[in-house]
Write a protein that binds this DNA or RNA. Structure first.
Length: 430
RNA sequence: GGAGAGGUGCCGGAGUGGUAACGGAGCAGAUUGCUAAUCUGUCGACGCGCACGUGUCGCAUGGGUUCGAAUCCCAUUCUCUCCGCCA
């Protein structure tokens, strides 16, 4: 008989720190008391059931051994008597097993409703308006008379064709042409080079993932609607490289000296994105398919926030090289993703649109993902511990492109940032 | 798509009905006059116990047969080899 057992090391943590956790979750405007209460109740129920069943099975195992011995010594008569006893035990343990499975499922489901616990530095707040600006760099350029938003520039220079994308697929699937396509490729190469120079190992991953992968990083089951689902094969188009890349380490027990693991990878990303409309989704602002270069790290818990900072510094350096005005926000509890403990958003200023555009999101998930991924390591005492996972965009292409097009436009054409010229092979789009 | 073989612990690898050999890695302890060797123990998950301990589960997954299943049966799934198709 096999039992579904959730490896929820977090349960012990919840048991011991219920009050603190409930208080921390208040930052998400979540009344966690009942959620936690429910979990603890189911947990207790489950443990009681398991103890009971273990005892029954132990007895049954013992009898089976005795029966085996009796047969061997030719005492079939006595063996048969014992057999009768085991029947009742068997039925009882079967029922207990079913009950245990049911409670375990309930417990799992109850646990999935609890989001990650926000880091102490996370500000409370309801929406993106309450996010805390922690850094700002770069001057916002004064644009020439008649400066255009990027979708008009795209048309003027014939580098991105949104209508063509509509024809062959639908809205939100742009077609890049000529120097536009080349600039995309240049950005991807440039980002990957920067990341590998910083010590991240470049990898290429599948763009379709199975359900277990979606579950591991937290897209499933709750954010199912965000992903494109290929029904015939039950696979999902990745919404970000985070999913396949982090899942590379799923079901692993790493040695201490394997850590940290630093990966970078380029993938297209696919998002169904129900919702918004109007100018906010115009042009490159929000797409169903876009390109992104991602960085992913696996760390010992005691190093993970240092790692988060180093990721932030790394992205700052790239934006500085591109000479784009940007700011960094620390997401408030209300805006923080379900699986994240602390997230910094990078936003670049889109001059012609006069608004900030998110181009990177850097998060520490602590052990939230690794718990689902069963991603562990042996600590210095040889004890198995959950690792911490982190990831960030480095960087998302469309809005960086939008920022470049708008901020670098001149009467003569769109200038290419110096660092990109070796990659594009041209210095102006005209 | 057709045919065959296979899936055993962190890794390798035995095991065809009596309750997971053996080897390696890692860790812990012991020991030896030096970056090493040797010996012993430990090794995944979930419980119970203050604790020394101890119970259950784990042989791809889910069922079934049996007092007892890695082993027998059914379904599913994945991998490999050959054929077909093909970038």
């Amino acid at each position: 008989m096999c039992l579904k057992i959730s490896p929820m090391l977090v349960l012990q943590v919840i048991r011991d720190n219920k009050k603190e956790i409930a208080a921390a979750l208040k930052k998400r405007n979540l009344d966690a008391d009942t959620l936690l209460e429910n979990v603890l109740e189911l947990d207790e129920k489950r443990r009681a059931l398991q103890t009971e069943m273990d005892q029954t099975l132990a007895q049954s195992n013992k009898l089976s051994k005795e029966i085996g011995m009796l047969y061997k010594t030719g005492k079939a008569q006595e063996a048969n008597t014992l057999k009768e006893q085991t029947t009742a035990l068997k039925e009882a343990s079967k029922k207990m097993g079913e009950a245990l499975n049911a409670v375990s499922d309930d417990l799992d489901n109850a646990l999935y409703l609890i989001p990650n616990i926000p880091h102490t530095s996370v500000p409370s707040g309801n929406s993106e308006e309450d996010n805390e600006e922690v850094y700002k760099e770069g001057d916002i350029p004064k644009l020439m008379e008649g400066a255009l938003p990027h979708w008009d520039l795209a048309k003027k220079y014939d580098i991105i064709d949104f209508e063509l994308g509509v024809k062959i697929t639908g809205a939100g699937f742009p077609v890049y042409k000529g120097k536009g396509a080349r600039l995309q490729r240049a950005l991807i190469s440039y980002f990957l080079d920067k990341n590998t120079q910083a010590g991240y190992t470049e990898i290429q991953v599948p763009y379709l993932v199975n359900e277990a992968s979606g579950f591991g990083t937290g897209q499933l089951p709750d954010k199912e609607g965000q992903m494109y689902h290929v029904q015939a094969d039950d696979l999902y188009l990745i919404p970000t490289a985070e999913v396949p890349v982090t899942n590379l380490l799923r079901d692993n027990i790493l040695n201490l000296n394997d850590l940290p693991i630093c990966y970078t990878g380029y993938t297209p990303c696919f998002r169904r994105e129900a919702g918004s409309y109007g100018a906010h989704v115009r042009g490159l602002n929000r797409l169903h398919q876009f390109d992104k270069v991602e960085i992913v790290r696996v760390e010992q818990p005691e190093n993970s926030y240092q790692a988060l900072n180093s990721m932030v510094e790394h992205i700052k350096e790239i934006l500085k090289e591109l000479n784009l005005p940007y700011r960094i926000l620390r997401l408030c509890g209300g805006d923080l993703g379900f699986t994240s403990a602390l997230t910094y958003d990078f936003e670049v200023f889109s001059t012609a649109q006069d608004r900030w555009l998110e181009i990177s999101s850097v998060s520490n998930f602590e052990s939230y993902q690794s718990n689902r991924l069963k991603l562990r390591y042996k600590d210095e005492n040889g004890k198995t511990q959950l690792a911490h996972t982190l990831n960030g965009s480095s960087l998302a292409l469309p809005r960086v492109l939008a920022g470049i097009l708008e901020n670098y436009q001149t009467k003569e054409g769109i200038r290419i940032p110096d660092v990109l010229i070796p990659y594009t092979g041209f210095d102006i789009i005209d």
